[in-house]
């Protein structure tokens, strides 16, 4: 592959597409809006193609894992039929990919969602366990977190607010002042970083994702 196709062409395409999406945000015009909408449609198409490619890569990767380590078979032989079943129900049974079908929804609600609910509740216990075992006050940030977390947790327990009514306004203050202030600061930092990465990409200077071999 020539250097132009591998490196220069993606940068040119990124620049054109980036400008075509950015300009209509500030300067609305029917033609520019139509171009933006068309690019949006293509983004969806490309994304879905990459998901399909990812499925192929993932299957190949699992197959290689199985060849390297036969003990993996127990997991793969269990998961692969389920993957095939979901693909069949999601794409073939109600062609083309009607995921609101009763069969697909049954699988989603009773298998996938149940598993996710179980998983999402687990970190709660891990958090408490970690708070007890792993939490060490090594810095001012960690001390502030411990103090704020402790006061806020006590505020959530009726017995403590009954015994110490002052915990109520303290807990509210923690949530509404330092928490909101910190959250906004972090959000602004993320936004500014995204702008800088975007501008660097448009300028063709964001090489992290295209210079790897």
């Amino acid at each position: 592959m020539s250097e132009f196709v591998r490196r220069e062409l993606p940068l040119v395409l990124i620049f054109i597409c980036g400008i075509a999406v950015l300009v209509p945000f500030f300067f609305p015009h029917p033609f520019l809006n139509a171009v933006k909408a068309e690019l949006g449609n293509w983004a969806v198409i490309i994304r879905n193609v990459t998901i399909f490619l990812g499925l192929i890569y993932m299957s190949f990767s699992q197959w290689r894992s199985l060849q390297r380590d036969k003990s993996m078979g127990g997991y793969i032989y269990f998961v692969a039929p389920y993957l095939a079943l979901v693909l069949f129900v999601g794409t073939a049974l109600a062609f083309p990919g009607y995921i609101n079908s009763a069969q697909y929804q049954w699988l989603y609600q009773n298998v996938y969602r149940a598993q996710v609910s179980m998983y999402v509740s687990l970190p709660l216990f891990y958090c408490y366990s970690a708070a007890y075992r792993a939490f060490t006050v090594r810095s001012i940030e960690a001390f502030a977190l411990m103090l704020g977390g402790m006061l806020y947790t006590l505020r959530q327990i009726p017995l403590f607010t009954y015994l110490f009514p002052v915990l109520l306004p303290i807990g509210e203050w923690i949530m509404l002042v330092p928490n909101v202030g910190g959250g906004r600061g972090a959000t602004i930092a993320v936004g500014l970083a995204a702008i800088v990465v975007g501008l660097r990409t448009l300028a063709g200077r964001e090489v992290t994702t295209i210079e790897v071999r």
Binding site: V190, G191, A193, A194, V196, V197, E206, T209
Partner: peptide, 8 residues
């Protein structure tokens, strides 16, 4: 997404 800077 806007989180791309974290990935990089």
């Amino acid at each position: 997404t806007s989180l791309v800077s974290m990935t990089l």
